[in-house]
Amino acid sequence: MRWDAFLKEVQDRGEYGTQLEAERAARTVLALLGAHLVGEVRAELAARLPETFAVILLNPLKAAEPLPADRFVRATAAWIEGATEQTATWDVSAVLSVVADAAGTDLTRRILLQLPVGYDLLFGHPQPT
């Protein structure tokens, strides 16, 4: 997916006033996501993202352990100035739903297998319980 198309989708889904807001959310969420994905799955996802975002995904923030979805949202809020858990949930969902579209169904399923329960909703792909 191209840079402009990716950011336009994030901006539309996140209802951001500017592309800069969408980019800030995307950079933060992808840096945190990269810390939770490993191996071939992370590499495949990076190959489907714009180059700048692929680099962010492949050089992630360090995570000691996989964060449950609610803690992932709180971590996102901590990295975005002025964000609350509610706005961070919006940011995460806007970015991860575009990531899911770029990844496609099979790769998104494999991504979700590497993440703790609860991320399916953030990706916009609810899984049956």
Rank of each mutant, 00 (worst) to 15 (best):
L115F: 07
A64M: 12
L20P: 02
W90E: 07
D120T: 12
L45V: 03
L30C: 01
D91T: 08
T89V: 11
T84N: 09
T52S: 13
P60T: 11
A31R: 06
T18E: 15
A88F: 05
D70N: 14
A103N: 04
A77N: 06
D120K: 05
S97L: 00
T84V: 13
L20S: 15
G118A: 09
V99N: 02
F123E: 03
D106I: 14
E85D: 15
L32R: 05
A25D: 12
A31E: 04
L57S: 00
T105Y: 12
G118R: 11
I111S: 00
L113K: 13
P50L: 02
E85P: 12
I80N: 04
R71V: 07
E9T: 01
V98G: 01
E40G: 10
E21H: 12
R24W: 04
L32P: 04
R42V: 03
L61V: 12
L32M: 05
A100T: 03
D12P: 01
D101F: 03
R13F: 04
E44P: 01
V99L: 02
R13L: 13
L45H: 06
A64F: 06
V38K: 11
E15W: 07
H36V: 06
E85T: 10
E40I: 08
L57R: 00
G17I: 07
A88H: 05
L20W: 06
D120L: 07
E44G: 09
L45D: 05
A75S: 11
E65H: 12
G118S: 09
L115C: 09
G82A: 15
K8L: 12
A25T: 05
A35Q: 03
I111H: 01
L49G: 00
G14W: 00
L107G: 07
D70E: 15
K8P: 04
P66C: 07
N59G: 04
R109S: 15
L67N: 03
L107W: 09
A22P: 03
D106S: 15
A100K: 09
V99D: 01
A83E: 09
N59W: 10
W79E: 09
D91Q: 12
S97E: 04
S97A: 03
A69E: 12
G39H: 09
E21F: 06
V55A: 13
L30R: 00
L32A: 05
V55T: 11
V55G: 07
L122V: 08
A75P: 03
A77V: 08
A25C: 11
S93Y: 02
V98H: 02
D120F: 10
E51H: 05
N59A: 07
L7T: 02
Y16A: 04
G39I: 04
A75T: 08
A26F: 03
I111P: 01
E9D: 14
R48K: 13
D106M: 10
V73Q: 08
L61F: 08
R109K: 14
I56E: 01
T76Q: 03
A77D: 07
A43M: 05
W79H: 14
G124K: 07
W79N: 09
Y119R: 12
G34M: 06
L113V: 11
L45T: 01
T84D: 08
F72L: 06
A94G: 14
R24M: 10
T18Y: 12
